[in-house]
Every structure is written in C-alpha cells, then in structure tokens.
C-alpha cells in the first residue's frame, strides 16, 4: 500500500515551472530517495507533500485520502536550510515544537530525554541554539523532526553539513526508524547513501520525473555489460589477455585473499569468451554482473535527458 501518492502535480512560480506533471508513489514503510540536480524541483515537491504550498494542478493522496492540514501531525519535516529559534534553549525549543505537533509536555520531555541520551547530548538541554555549532544544531533539529513519531518523515538533504561519524549515526537512525515502520522520504545528492539505504528512488530533472522505481531494479537495468570476476592468480596477465574483449578495468581485494576485477564488456564480446580466457589465465572463483552505481545512473540519465530536450 502506498502512503503517499502524488498524482500529476504541477507547480509554477513567476517566471519558471518548478514541477511539470510529476507523479510518484511512496510505498508504506519504505525509504524513498528523491534525487535530482540543484533546482530540479525536489524541494518544491517536498513542500507540496508537506502541505506548506499547494500544487497548481494535480493532487496528493496521503494514506488513502486527499492530503489535508490535519495530516501534517503525522509528518515530520527536516528542512534543507535548518531553522530553529536561535535565542531559545535547546530543551525548551524541542518541547515547544513537540507540543505544536500535539504531544503533551510530559510525554515530550520523556521522549526528548531518551533521544538526548542516545545522541549523547544531554548536556545541551539548557544551551541556546546560537551557542551550538551547525552540526550540533542539526542533531537537535533531527530530534525535533522525529520526536512525535510520525508515520511519514521528510528529510530535505539530511546529510549535508554532517561529518562522516554523524552522517553514519544519522544513517543508522534512519534505518532504525524504517524498522519501526516509518516511511521516509528524503532528497539528497549523496549517491552512496542512496545505494545504502533507499528502497525506491525518483530522479527529478528540469521539473520532470525522469526515472522512478526500485533501486536494485534500476541499478540492474543500468549495469549494461558490467561484470566482476573474483580469482586467485596474476591480475596483470589476466587484464592483458582480456584486453580486446573488455575495458575500464578496476581491481579490488576480495574475500579469502582473492582479488576482484571489474570491467566493462565490449559490445561485440560475450561473457562466455571472457570466462574461457580467464579460466586459462587464472583460477576463477566467481563471475557476477555488477550493479551500476547510482552516481553513474544519475549522471547518465540527466545528461541523456538534457541532450534530448
């Protein structure tokens, strides 16, 4: 069942079209990535789903009914440009926002204490936001977003501004929330995080939805003759012998002291040829079709689209 159905939504601002007939379906309990170049219309789409702005045409269904103001209580929103009251103390502020979402003061305080302990920031309770660094404030903002345990979490660029350790912390929290059944929709430029945590993606470019679907399906579809071999033996010799059949070699360490060779098969070569040559040169352990990286898919799709239009 889909928690969010965006149906043929268009939105224009003075001078430019932000979204043109965009449709997406976000399955309940999934992590859904919204990708696209800067200015493609991601944030506008997020704001429409969030009921901050209304679409010019089309509609948004939430949990089976048309999206209304009451549904925002079931959403948590982490805006791209983080905003908290600078002069307010961290704890006070978090309670304020939790109560705006309908939590009681006691319940909000209890949950906040839990989160602050988990993020190891209990000492910040009485600090003002302006005393915190940007990354620290983002942690607080994240807690404020998820505190009321909404059905749907919307993160706009959640990883920007976090150091690798905190980005990992954030990623783990997102996965933990997913396990609890929360649906998570987020926009990002961080393709590695998409491969790691997204179940579905939509690629928006120039206000259009140009690619939508399950991440693994998409990556498989775009692999286009990419294979990886694991083997023991002389990798230099292997590469030399495979050279006419394949190109773009890269190597890496694999399990059990083996090596891995990634390559792109030439259009006129077959996998059978590659295997027979490799068998003669090294001791082959496995042959796999490698999934395309989201990074390549992103660049290729956007460039193709821009060429056609």
């Amino acid at each position: 069942m889909n928690l969010i159905e965006v149906e043929n939504v268009s939105k224009a601002f003075t001078g430019h079209v932000a979204l043109d007939d965009v449709s997406i379906s976000v399955p309940e309990g999934s992590v859904y990535g919204l990708l696209g170049p800067n200015g493609a219309g991601k944030t506008t789409l997020i704001r429409i789903i969030n009921h901050i702005t209304a679409p010019d045409s089309g509609r948004v269904m939430f949990n089976g009914h048309q999206l209304s103001q009451d549904d925002v209580a079931n959403m948590g929103y982490l805006p791209e440009e983080r905003g908290l009251y600078k002069k307010m103390k961290v704890g006070e502020q978090a309670i304020f926002f939790a109560r705006l979402k309908g939590l009681s003061k006691a319940e909000a305080t209890r949950r906040l204490k839990e989160w602050f302990d988990r993020f190891e920031i209990s000492g910040w309770w009485n600090k003002k936001i302006e005393e915190l660094s940007k990354g620290m404030a983002q942690k607080v903002q994240f807690i404020v977003t998820v505190l009321h345990q909404p059905k749907l979490l919307i993160f706009d660029e959640p990883f920007s501004g976090f150091d690798p350790i905190n980005a990992n912390l954030l990623r783990d929290e997102i996965l933990r929330l997913k396990e609890q059944g929360t649906t998570i929709l987020f926009s990002t430029h961080n393709m590695a995080s998409v491969e790691e945590i997204c179940d579905y993606i939509t690629l928006i470019n120039d206000s259009h939805n140009i690619l939508s679907g399950n991440v693994n399906d998409i990556r498989r579809k775009y692999c286009e003759g990419r294979y990886s071999l694991t083997f023991t033996g002389d990798e230099r010799k292997l590469m030399e012998s495979l050279l006419p059949l394949a190109s773009q070699f890269t190597t890496a360490d694999a399990d059990n002291g083996r090596r891995q060779l990634n390559m792109l098969l030439s259009p006129d070569a077959t996998l059978r040829d590659v295997i027979s040559i490799a068998n003669d040169t090294v001791q082959l352990a496995s042959v796999n079709e490698s999934l395309a990286s989201m990074n390549d898919i992103f660049i290729k799709t956007v460039e193709n689209y821009n060429k056609q239009h």
Binding site: N50, I52, Y77, P79, G83, F97, L100
Partner: peptide, 13 residues
C-alpha cells in the same frame, strides 16, 4: 530568513 517558519508551518496553520 532562518527557516523556522517552514518548520512551524509544517505543524500548524
């Protein structure tokens, strides 16, 4: 300017 409003608007009218 500092985007707090966005956060508040996502909670109340």
């Amino acid at each position: 300017t500092n985007r707090v409003l966005e956060l508040v608007v996502s909670s109340v009218k």
